[in-house]
């Protein structure tokens, strides 16, 4: 193998340890120099590409799957399964019209998991950001048939899709007078006892309340008037009439 071919192969497959490549690496001189240069670059590339992974990512995936499976397990006696299957067949036809059935403990568990999962990270990412393109914000929300009033739209610092107890929802960071707050819009989830105050890790608190379609959970520090803020936000949501999600 000549030097040019050796360099080409280092650039296409630097991990190649075939006999020919080993021999070339051991040939010394310009071959050794090329190999060292390639190894140095690959080490730098490895450092650059290996971005930090969210803490406990695999655990959160496993936990989420376990929770989803638990909620899917039948909770009625087998003798009534046939009747339930018939009821399900009817329900499926109107599935998109019906909200999810989430208990308070499931909601609390989800909000706690969700906040731990990426709440502080998303808040940190949004810090110091200017307002994102309002069209992009509305585009995310329109997936769920909802829009924000212009004055609330101005406060949005970040929007993304996120999991909820009953499918996808929106994760929003809003700038408020008492600092940035996190809002989860859960289009298919109803809060069994709305409004509800739910304590979270790190002295954070969530206020969950039902809106015309689905519910909101506002997460703020204890000093913020989260209940009032949540009510104010709920008044600034506009729902597309007749839309199902």
């Amino acid at each position: 193998m000549n030097l040019l071919e050796f360099k080409r192969r280092l650039m296409t497959d630097p991990a190649d340890r075939s006999d020919a490549m080993r021999a070339a690496r051991a040939a010394g001189g310009e071959f050794a120099g090329a190999a060292e240069e390639s190894d140095r670059f690959e080490a730098k590339l490895h450092q650059a590409l290996n971005v930090p992974v969210p803490h406990g990512l695999a655990d959160s995936i496993i936990l989420r799957q376990s929770l989803a499976e638990d909620s899917r397990k039948p909770r009625w006696p087998q003798l009534t399964a046939l009747a339930a299957a018939l009821a399900l067949a009817v329900a499926v036809t109107t599935f998109t019209m019906l909200p999810g059935k989430t208990s308070m403990s499931e909601l609390q568990e989800h909000l706690s998991w969700h906040w731990q999962h990426d709440g502080p990270q998303v808040l940190a990412m949004s810090a110091g950001r200017t307002q994102p393109d309002p069209n992009q914000v509305q585009q995310v929300l329109s997936e769920f048939g909802v829009q924000l009033a212009p004055e609330m739209l101005e406060r949005v610092r970040m929007t993304k899709f996120c999991p909820t107890p009953d499918g996808a929802g929106a994760h929003i960071v809003l700038a408020t007078e008492s600092g940035p707050v996190t809002l989860y819009y859960m289009p298919r989830t109803r809060v069994p006892s709305s409004p509800a105050r739910i304590p979270l890790d790190g002295d954070m608190q969530a206020v969950a309340l039902n809106v015309e379609r689905g519910s909101l959970a506002l997460i703020a520090e204890p000093g913020a008037d989260a209940p009032e803020l949540a009510r104010e936000i709920s008044r600034q949501l506009a729902f597309a009439p007749g839309m199902t999600i």
Partner: peptide, 28 residues
């Protein structure tokens, strides 16, 4: 599978979509 591949899939997701939070959702 989650323990073996989640981290690398996340990194792949980050470079695919260029967004840390979105990559997280993508892996989930």
């Amino acid at each position: 599978l989650a323990r073996q591949y989640a981290d690398d899939l996340f990194r792949f997701g980050v470079w695919l979509c260029g967004d840390h939070a979105l990559a997280n959702d993508l892996v989930q």
